[in-house]
Nucleic acid binder design. Structure first.
Lengths: 199, 199
DNA sequence: GTAAATCTACCGACCGGTAAGTAGAATCAC
DNA sequence: GTGATTCTACTTACCGGTCGGTAGATTTAC
């Protein structure tokens, strides 16, 4: 394992996480062998094991990276937004952007957790649940402001996630639609489906 | 392989497809070994191979079953509905119901197709594309009736699928929410997100 | 009796993972 | 400054185990 935080080995580790995350996204965790990752990086399987202890731990590190990305780009900024509607719009747009831009570590968060150890799985599930509750509480605020339509709030929250989590499975940045257009459209659909119209 | 359509072997085959579909849903195709399926059915691996030629072919049969279910319960009836809005509501509600009721074959349609042969994959993708285009064309009709909000129709169609495909990953029939409530809520959210409000 | 259905016993391929070794850069002793 | 030593970042070669899959014997149902 890379002993200290030397720039070089740190960069290399990041390269490895990125390449592995892409393969896990494209083929799935179980269908990706450690040799696949190695050959994508033009090195040997044994060489990879210098950077992590097991394939499972590699997955856990990638998922943790993804959760950190969401925390930095979505959750932490969103916590500073007081208005619930504005906050929800921010969360949806920015999570959608991460997904559409092809941040594979973020995309993997919601799949493949069965492959983790019990402890790792619990850690990931707790962080995901915190995220879910944060969004759910935002909907509760909207409800109290009488801005929410008559839907079950839990169902609504999950359905919001469904819209965004499906994005990376169909959206191609190389196509006609820009990331910004798609994120805006998805966010608009979601909000209009939830909120009472006041115009 | 079961030679003829005798009731007995046909029933047994169905049992096998059901058990395998459930495991594929719960653990994923690659993480489910043929022995896992066998022990779930209290028989041996070799015994299973009397009913299919390969694990891959078993998956293809299950996916085909799922596509047939959607055709029977959603697409064929929907084709008879003339009003576009009513048709869309029917499609969403009934596909959501299949998903929420735990029809594993249906749920698997949208995952695991990477494990298929090229020909099988093309077949599945074509059927899925037909479905997608049918829904998309329904949105085009709504657009022409000036009933659709200003969203990209392709994005909207994919987003509808996202809402429904995510359903089986979180909904538990054993919980507080009934299948009917959830399907109605999801469908309402989707339609209200899409359609201009006329009240 | 016979055909359908299932079992026992096994195979080769590939998987995740490891032991042992090494080129070359960095560090140390003087 | 330079030779000895240590560390980083790998490689080659291999292992035990599990996987999908099969041949052929055996049981079951009628």
């Amino acid at each position: 394992m890379p002993r200290n935080g030397t720039q070089k080995s740190h960069d290399r580790a990041q390269e490895i996480y990125l390449a592995a995350a892409q393969l896990f996204f494209e083929k799935g965790f179980e269908s990706t062998s450690v040799s696949d990752i190695a050959s994508a990086l033009k090195m040997t399987k044994a060489g990879l094991y210098y950077y992590f202890e097991s394939k499972q731990e590699l997955l856990f590190r990638i998922v943790t990276l993804g959760l950190d990305s969401v925390k930095d780009a979505v959750l932490d900024p969103a916590h500073l937004i007081e208005d619930a509607e504005e906050r929800l719009r921010f969360i949806l747009t920015n999570h959608a952007r991460l997904a559409a831009e092809g941040n594979h570590a973020v995309i993997i968060i919601s799949h493949e957790i069965n492959a983790l150890t019990f402890d790792q799985r619990v850690t990931v599930q707790n962080r995901r649940r915190d995220y879910f509750e944060f969004v759910r509480n935002t909907l509760v605020e909207l409800y109290e402001e009488k801005k929410l339509r008559d839907v079950d709030i839990t169902t609504a929250t999950f359905t919001l996630f469904g819209m965004i989590l499906w994005l990376p499975r169909w959206y191609r940045a190389s196509g006609k639609l820009s990331v910004e257009t798609v994120c805006r459209d998805v966010c608009d659909m979601a909000l209009r489906g939830l909120m009472v119209q006041r115009n």
